[in-house]
Write a protein that binds this DNA or RNA. Sequence first.
DNA 1: CCCATTGTAATCATATATGATTACAATCAC
DNA 2: GTGATTGTAATCATATATGATTACAATGGG
Lengths: 80, 80
Amino acid sequence: MKNELVLQAFGQHLRRLREARGWSQQALADVADVSKPTIYRLETARYSVTLDVLASLAQGLEIPLSELMQFPVPPRSSAD
Amino acid sequence: MKNELVLQAFGQHLRRLREARGWSQQALADVADVSKPTIYRLETARYSVTLDVLASLAQGLEIPLSELMQFPVPPRSSAD
DNA sequence: CCCATTGTAATCATATATGATTACAATCAC
DNA sequence: GTGATTGTAATCATATATGATTACAATGGG
């Protein structure tokens, strides 16, 4: 799990998208067909996430995958 | 690894981006700082891919992450 | 003709992403 | 104030994503 900053940025982005819809983590987990712990872990940047899950999230959020990936990517740290 | 069609579409997209630059799999692996087997396996849709690696690929290809994710997502099969 | 490069492929080892389950404090409905 | 909901959290088990290594056929350069 290198590139931790990207994961944090994505987590925040995902949370904003979810909250903008007034959904609980459980509700998003349901419509996206992923587990509730996964939602929690992504929003809190505890792990990375696979393209599989990204596609499911986009589908659950009813937005294109490319839009789900439209979040500010922080500059790479000098340590990689 | 559900959502296999998405992985196939991404693999084709990645390959097109790479070949458009005239790069070998090894060359892309180098600039993106991922292994050559990983490039091969992604292009041939053998596995999914983590956001970590996606971010590295985008950086190696010198395009925004959102652009790397701009490929035609096939409709979900009825079997999920 | 060699020799290097390239894409494909398999194997092994390891890290990790995911789900299932459980728990718990805070909040909210009523 | 009791009971359900919510976010957080940990643990266990399992699948899998990734790297390292090796090999091999095809191709291309010289």
